[in-house]
């Protein structure tokens, strides 16, 4: 465990908690893409099936359980509890266009052709693009609440910090995983535009409104 990995994990955890807190506190999930949240719940479920096969550490297992539980709690809040506030008219990104290519790619490019390894690979590919429905929703409405932009910033930073973690692991442990690295780069690049807006607007105390 290095500092990049730890801050990456904490940033990821923070993102998930910010989202839950925002929905709970405002009693509303407006501005949040339920479709992205479906994809994230799929990602965690597919990836963390290894909870049943590999025990790594208490930290590892606890974090995985929190991620899965939080993902389903978020879905519950969006689709059941605060259903009336869900922005379904703007949340129209077709997720099958992400799910199908990721599934196909995972079947072709994986480390090992076993159910668990293919699902693990699928989750890595899917995670890299899972934010697209959310970014699409923000671009469609042209704005995001400040708390939603904090959520997106924490979530985007997490994979960027993982990239630093992989550079560190390559140099100091001789370890690298090309599938995760390439997907991680794609994932981080997708946030770049948002990072720019976040730094130039939100940090200066302005709302995140997209340039017309």
């Amino acid at each position: 465990m290095n500092i990049f990995r730890l801050t990456g994990d904490l940033s990821h955890l923070l993102a998930i908690l910010i989202l839950l807190w925002k929905i709970w506190k405002t009693r509303s999930c407006s501005g949040i893409s339920g479709r992205s949240q479906i994809l994230f719940a799929t990602v965690y479920t597919a990836r963390y099936l290894d909870l049943f096969t590999n025990f790594v550490s208490v930290y590892n297992s606890v974090m995985k359980i929190i991620f899965i539980a939080a993902a389903f709690a978020t879905l519950y809040l969006i689709y059941v509890k605060f259903k009336a506030t869900y922005d379904r008219n703007h949340d129209t990104f077709r997720i099958e266009f992400l799910l199908a290519p990721c599934a196909l790619l995972a079947l072709i490019l994986n480390h090992e052709f076993t159910i668990l390894e293919v699902l693990w690979t699928f989750s890595i590919y899917l995670e890299s693009v899972a934010i697209l429905p959310q970014l699409f929703l923000v671009s469609k409405t042209g704005e995001a609440e400040t708390i939603t932009s904090h959520y997106l910033f924490a979530l985007g930073s997490y994979r960027a910090l993982y990239l630093l973690n992989w550079i560190y692991r390559y140099y100091f442990e001789g370890f690298f995983d090309l599938i995760a690295i390439v997907a991680g780069i794609v994932q981080t690049v997708l946030y770049c535009d948002f990072f720019y807006l976040y730094i130039t607007r939100v940090i200066k105390g302005r709302a995140l409104k997209l340039p017309a």
Binding site: R5, D9, H12, D50, N54, V56, S57, N60, M63, K64, F67, H111, E112, W120, Y162, N165, R169, E173, F175, D177, A180
Partner: peptide
């Protein structure tokens, strides 16, 4: 091994 190192990450 390599597989364990991968599954160690979140």
């Amino acid at each position: 091994d390599e597989k364990e190192m991968r599954h160690d990450e979140l």
